[in-house]
Design a protein around this nucleic acid. Structure first.
Lengths: 208, 208
DNA sequence: TCAAAACTAGACTGACAAGTATAAAAATAT
DNA sequence: ATATTTTTATACTTGTCAGTCTAGTTTTGA
């Protein structure tokens, strides 16, 4: 039943169910959402949901895993642009910073964090999926890039992991309150300001 | 029925119910916790819970509000220690930073954030209570202190609010991942290191 | 001391939702 | 073409839980 052996039509429905489940769970909460509603949103019969996922909890797990995977891909794409062009590093960092902020402020991204926080107490293994598969991976790739920039003499740092911690804290920390925990959309201008301010502090500490 | 007019014994039970409700909701989630369980944990009959709070949702609101109030008080007490002693500012900032980190890592504090995130989608007005009554208040008081230190020439900053954003981001940002969203206890030594690193970056950007 | 208010234990109702069952229809594979 | 798998609609079972009710007990205030 995996992605390679299953019939193609089956995977289409599976994806539709996952997307619908994530959307409904995010909107009304896991406990408040019935499997019937997920099925309706996916345009599918309830029995089909059970045929694919067995029970509601598995559905939640898979939906979260899929969403985390998607979010990770977007983050990695943003980090991809952090390359040494020879010119001034600041505008490049600001650009990447803004893109990471945009990832963080995506509706799905807020929804993912909400679901994760909400169900963490009663499904602790979700942490494994999201922390290890997503967060740490992004952190590692970003640390690699920073290390390379330091080696080329464009940054002054000894511990790339510490620098990543500070960089992402500076970028995402201000977002929680300003975006009112995902209930308010930030204007693009505000995002740029936050990115610029974050990079400014970062470069004071780690710039050459 | 407020704190001043209600019989004294009544308030004792009320507090017991609030504390038990917060603990149970935090441990197993709001939807997964029955009112019976809260009553049992509080050592009280179920009818008494309804007598005090009317329904489960009100109980949640009041429990969160009470917890937010307590958390705010602890934060403000930590900030209280940020005063100009004439000597070096760094150790004072590190001390206050460590205390703020300890507030943030408190079990109740993690539980509060989890509950807030979890129920935000379906009770949006919780934001009002926590954001306005707690978070913004702490931020304002801290900004006042930083402004005063800047005026005395110990910090170099134009926008105290921006500096507070960065300071608290640097202090609390690294905690999410390290404490695994509240599921892991941080050793005291690690907290001190995080505080020292955060203050170091902060002073590079805002120190004189 | 005595009346009013608050509390208790327990049973009860009613709604809601997870998961199953069934039989027919659609898609798919060989 | 036909056998197999998947999907659908619908009805059903079952357990859970918010909130109510009752009747008796404790606490409190004056």
């Amino acid at each position: 039943m995996d992605a390679t052996t299953a019939p193609r039509g089956r995977m289409v429905k599976r994806q539709a169910i996952l997307a619908a489940a994530f959307g409904e769970f995010a909107a009304r909460g896991y406990a408040q959402t019935g499997v019937d509603e997920v099925a309706a949103a996916a345009g599918v019969a309830k029995a089909t949901v059970y045929n694919h996922f067995g029970d509601k909890e598995t559905l939640l797990r898979e939906a979260i895993a899929a969403s985390a995977e998607a979010a990770t891909a977007k983050n990695l794409a943003a980090i991809e642009r952090l390359v040494d062009t020879g010119g001034d590093l600041r505008p490049i960092l600001e650009d990447v910073g803004l893109r990471l902020i945009q990832c963080y402020c995506d509706d799905d991204s807020w929804a993912l964090r909400r679901l994760l926080y909400a169900e963490l107490a009663h499904l602790p293994d979700l942490l494994e999926i999201v922390q290890v598969q997503a967060a740490e991976r992004v952190q590692r790739v970003l640390a690699d890039r920073l290390a390379r920039l330091a080696l080329a003499g464009h940054l002054r740092l000894t511990d790339p992991d510490a620098a990543v911690e500070h960089l992402s804290a500076l970028l995402t920390g201000p977002l929680e309150a300003r975006a009112r925990w995902g209930t308010r959309r930030l204007p693009a201008k505000e995002m740029r300001q936050i990115a610029a301010a974050a990079i400014d502090v970062f470069l004071h500490a780690y710039g050459t």
